[in-house]
């Protein structure tokens, strides 16, 4: 798994590439924690190159969403979610907790 972040005027885009499971989810949690610790609370998680995500990844997203939404200071949105991952997120009821956009441009524009 590989994570890259890019800062925009109103938000940061976190691109997650590869596979997120119990082995790699701590890296994702750490990357999201670092951004929120640095005061970045409007985040776009770009899943264009994400191949796989287990519930370990969902939990990292949930914890970060709670953190970002605290004091109404921001939120995490998702974009370009691959079909299989979207189905699993729907099964877990996560699509109600995150706004989902088709592409990063629309997601960035939402902030």
């Amino acid at each position: 798994m590989e994570i890259t972040t890019k800062e925009f005027k109103h938000c940061d885009v976190v691109s997650v590439n590869g596979r997120v499971d119990s082995s790699t989810s701590p890296q994702l949690a750490q990357a999201l924690d670092k951004l929120t610790d640095d005061g970045h609370h409007n985040l776009v998680v770009d899943m264009t190159k994400l191949e796989y995500m287990s519930s370990a990844g969902f939990r990292a997203l949930l914890a970060a969403q709670r953190n970002c939404k605290k004091f109404n200071r921001g939120e995490i949105v998702l974009c370009a979610v691959p079909e299989r991952i979207k189905e699993a997120l729907e099964l877990a009821g996560f699509t109600e907790l995150f706004k989902v956009f088709d592409d990063s441009l629309t997601a960035v524009g939402s902030f």
């Binding site: 287990s54 519930s55 939990r59 949930l62 877990a92 009821g93």
Partner: peptide, 18 residues
């Protein structure tokens, strides 16, 4: 409980549910 809101959502149990 998938109907619960963000703050009340349990972190565990999701793997077994899936």
């Amino acid at each position: 409980n998938l109907g619960k809101n963000l703050d009340e959502r349990e972190i565990g149990g999701l793997g077994v549910f899936l």
